[in-house]
Simulated assay, not measured.
Amino acid sequence: MDILFTLCGRAGSKGVKGKNARDFMDIPLCWYSMAGIALYIKQHTTADDHIDVVLNTDSEDLIRLVESANELPVAVLRRDESLAGDCVPKVAVILDCLTRAEKMFNANYDVVVDLDITSPLRTVEDIKNAIDRKVSRSEVDVVYSVAPSRRNPYFNMVKEENGFFCKAIPSNFTTRQEAPVFYDMNASIYAYSSKALKEKEQATFFNSNCDAVIMQDTGVLDIDSEEDYELMQVIAKYLFDNKENFKQTFELAKSWK
């Protein structure tokens, strides 16, 4: 199987300045995703598998950090300015990775796996589950990771409308258990079909023909604010101290310092 892993991060960030090149638990944040890839290669590939890893960025700091962890070879794709804006869909960046990697490595990839740099709390089993799910469902355009939602639009989520607040979706449910089950996209893992990346409309990519794998609810889904950055490190310390599957990613990343 041919797999392309992508790491994508801009230099600019509105919510958390320079977040992609920050440390997390005194280790570069990007190393957690890299450690996950390294563990997947070590534990779940064979001699018949071909794995390439690329970094797509306009950040010199991020390039420096990724290249300093030379135990995992990563090819750097310098991001064009046209793909560095606030409103550019990430699918467009993943397609750029795929197109350029195919030429660089002369490869045809079965799956393109993006690991979001700002979602460090994942295990190698989570990565394997997403890839296996995508391989088992060739008709699916993407398999992404989710966590059980703490709120439900039929029960305890509300919106403002005409000067009043009301349920996001009108219903007669009196308990959350009665309402349809919802999940949060936790912005951690995406396993794409190469064909779909090339052919599907980017703006509506996630509106249809998707599947998901469920990850552990860690409370904070990804780092999107200074509060997220602080709180996720508290959660991470607990997981690294008490959960072996989370700890092995941390220990590998720490060994690269």
Score class of each variant (00 low, 15 high):
1 M>E: 09
4 L>T: 01
5 F>G: 03
6 T>M: 02
7 L>N: 01
10 R>L: 10
12 G>F: 15
12 G>N: 15
13 S>D: 15
13 S>Y: 06
17 K>F: 07
17 K>E: 15
19 K>F: 06
19 K>G: 01
19 K>T: 08
23 D>K: 14
24 F>R: 05
25 M>R: 12
26 D>I: 02
27 I>W: 03
29 L>Y: 04
30 C>L: 07
30 C>G: 05
36 G>A: 06
40 Y>S: 04
43 Q>A: 09
45 T>S: 08
47 A>H: 12
47 A>W: 07
48 D>V: 09
49 D>Q: 02
50 H>F: 07
51 I>D: 05
55 L>K: 01
56 N>H: 12
56 N>G: 10
57 T>I: 04
58 D>E: 09
60 E>I: 14
60 E>L: 14
62 L>C: 06
62 L>Q: 04
66 V>A: 06
66 V>L: 06
68 S>T: 14
69 A>D: 03
69 A>V: 07
69 A>E: 02
71 E>K: 15
73 P>R: 09
73 P>Y: 08
73 P>K: 10
74 V>F: 01
77 L>M: 13
78 R>A: 08
79 R>Q: 15
80 D>C: 07
86 D>A: 15
87 C>G: 12
88 V>K: 06
89 P>D: 10
92 A>H: 08
100 R>M: 04
104 M>C: 09
109 Y>G: 01
109 Y>S: 02
110 D>C: 08
118 T>K: 13
119 S>Y: 02
119 S>F: 00
119 S>R: 04
119 S>G: 03
122 R>T: 13
122 R>S: 09
125 E>W: 00
126 D>R: 00
126 D>H: 02
127 I>R: 02
127 I>V: 13
128 K>A: 09
128 K>M: 04
129 N>G: 06
130 A>N: 01
130 A>F: 00
130 A>P: 01
132 D>Q: 11
135 V>T: 08
137 R>A: 12
137 R>E: 15
144 Y>P: 00
148 P>E: 06
149 S>F: 00
154 Y>W: 14
159 K>G: 05
160 E>D: 12
161 E>W: 10
162 N>D: 14
163 G>F: 02
166 C>Y: 03
167 K>M: 05
168 A>P: 02
170 P>A: 11
173 F>I: 05
174 T>L: 11
176 R>C: 11
178 E>S: 12
182 F>C: 06
182 F>H: 06
184 D>W: 00
190 Y>E: 03
194 S>Y: 05
195 K>A: 15
197 L>Q: 02
197 L>S: 01
199 E>C: 09
200 K>I: 02
201 E>V: 08
201 E>H: 10
202 Q>W: 07
203 A>Y: 14
204 T>A: 09
204 T>N: 11
205 F>A: 04
207 N>A: 11
209 N>A: 10
210 C>T: 14
212 A>D: 01
218 T>Q: 05
224 D>I: 11
224 D>H: 08
225 S>K: 06
226 E>N: 12
226 E>R: 09
227 E>T: 15
228 D>V: 07
230 E>L: 14
230 E>G: 10
231 L>Y: 11
233 Q>E: 13
234 V>L: 14
234 V>C: 10
237 K>C: 09
237 K>H: 13
238 Y>S: 15
238 Y>P: 11
239 L>S: 07
239 L>H: 03
240 F>H: 09
247 K>N: 10
247 K>R: 14
250 F>P: 01
252 L>F: 00
252 L>Y: 00
253 A>R: 01
255 S>L: 05
